[in-house]
Simulated assay, not measured.
Amino acid sequence: MSSLWVFPGQGAQQPGMLHRLPDEGVVRETLQQASGVLGEDILALDSEAMLRGTRAVQLCLLIAGVAAARLLQQRGAMPTFVAGLSIGAYPAAVIAGALDFDDALRLVALRGELMNNAYPQGYGMTVILGLAQHQVEALLSQVDGPVYLANINAERQMVVAGSDAAMQQVAALAKAAGASGTRRLAISVPSHCALLDAPARELAEAFSRVDVRPPQVRYLSATTARPVVQPERLRDDLAFNMCRVIDWRSTVETAHERGVTLQIEMPPGAVLTGLGRKVLQHATVVAFDGARLDSLVALSQEVNRS
């Protein structure tokens, strides 16, 4: 048996998410480390106003994920696998021992700025519920504006990215085709599509100056749904995941095939917990938020002893 720690992506952010982290020494140290590296009070980033910006959102998700995972590790819990959806790949790489937290902070700050500057307004992402991948792809072919398949979250949960007008057209077509719902996500950039090719190349240049090591915990790529071992492949995965389709469904299926019986979702929220239960039907799937810390540690240690 094995365990999987997952880290959510943009859209999961919540006002006050850093302030709600457990008041524990390792958490305070992580927050202080982030403030020191960035030269700013990171506890000012999780306000409702600041979370309207891509940079603040991505930094908060990175910091919250690393802080929570470090707390579990300090208590004796350890994952077999890690995986992150979009920006969640960065805290996953840190916890896997492949990327220093200091470097991750600087890279994520740059990542957020590059994405926001490329598309400051008029673009975003929309989730479509109740249609299969081939149905959504057929709808995309009917729209003239820039819009792409971005995320395969579940068998019948897809996310598209593009301009506001094009996404509205896709949403209308989806409803006419029998979709059970569509919803504009709290994401202000068109992630995981060709629109972000140029920012990804610029981020890759910054990545070339950063040390990336072989992961000490097995790292699953959410774009290929396969383990990544070589540092250069991991560097590529992190730098370019902003412009590549995320196949979260297949990523969790890969974990299932490798014997995962426990999935723990790092904060904030429980979006990936709901998606995980669709695949890991005979496993324990829980979120850090709302769970007792000692229960999470006990579950992890039980899996590790098996």
Rank of each mutant, 00 (worst) to 15 (best):
P15F: 12
A198N: 03
L72K: 07
F7M: 12
A109K: 13
Y148K: 12
E232L: 08
D102S: 13
A239Y: 06
T182C: 14
V66L: 13
L38A: 01
C193W: 04
E24S: 09
V94K: 12
N117W: 02
A68Y: 04
P267G: 07
L62G: 10
T254S: 10
Q169V: 12
G145N: 08
G122V: 08
Q74K: 13
L51T: 10
Y148I: 08
A154G: 09
G11T: 11
I152A: 00
I264L: 03
R235H: 06
M115Q: 01
Q73K: 15
A270F: 06
L280G: 08
A64G: 15
V229F: 15
Q230F: 06
V252S: 07
A298H: 13
R183L: 11
Q169G: 03
V297S: 09
E40R: 15
Q263E: 11
A93H: 10
A98G: 04
E265P: 15
V37R: 08
G88R: 03
N153M: 15
R233Y: 04
A67Q: 00
L43N: 07
N304P: 03
G178M: 11
V252E: 01
C193N: 09
S163I: 14
E257A: 14
V279T: 09
P214R: 04
M158H: 07
I63V: 15
Q157A: 03
E257N: 08
I264G: 02
S141Y: 14
C243Y: 00
T284S: 15
D236C: 07
S221T: 10
A44M: 07
Q133N: 03
I246A: 00
V159T: 07
T126S: 06
V212S: 01
R305L: 11
T254D: 03
D294F: 05
E302Y: 09
A298P: 05
G274N: 11
V37M: 08
A179W: 00
S2M: 08
H282Q: 13
H256G: 05
V245H: 01
S35W: 06
G162Q: 02
A93V: 14
L72V: 08
G76I: 10
F240S: 06
P268R: 05
Q230S: 10
E40C: 05
M50Q: 14
E113S: 08
T80D: 03
Q33R: 14
G76L: 10
Q301N: 09
D144V: 14
V271I: 06
G76E: 00
V252T: 06
L4N: 06
L262Q: 13
A67G: 05
K175L: 11
L43A: 13
L139G: 12
A104F: 06
R20D: 15
V136K: 14
L131W: 00
F7K: 05
A179F: 07
A171W: 02
L105R: 03
E302A: 15
E113P: 01
T261V: 09
L43W: 10
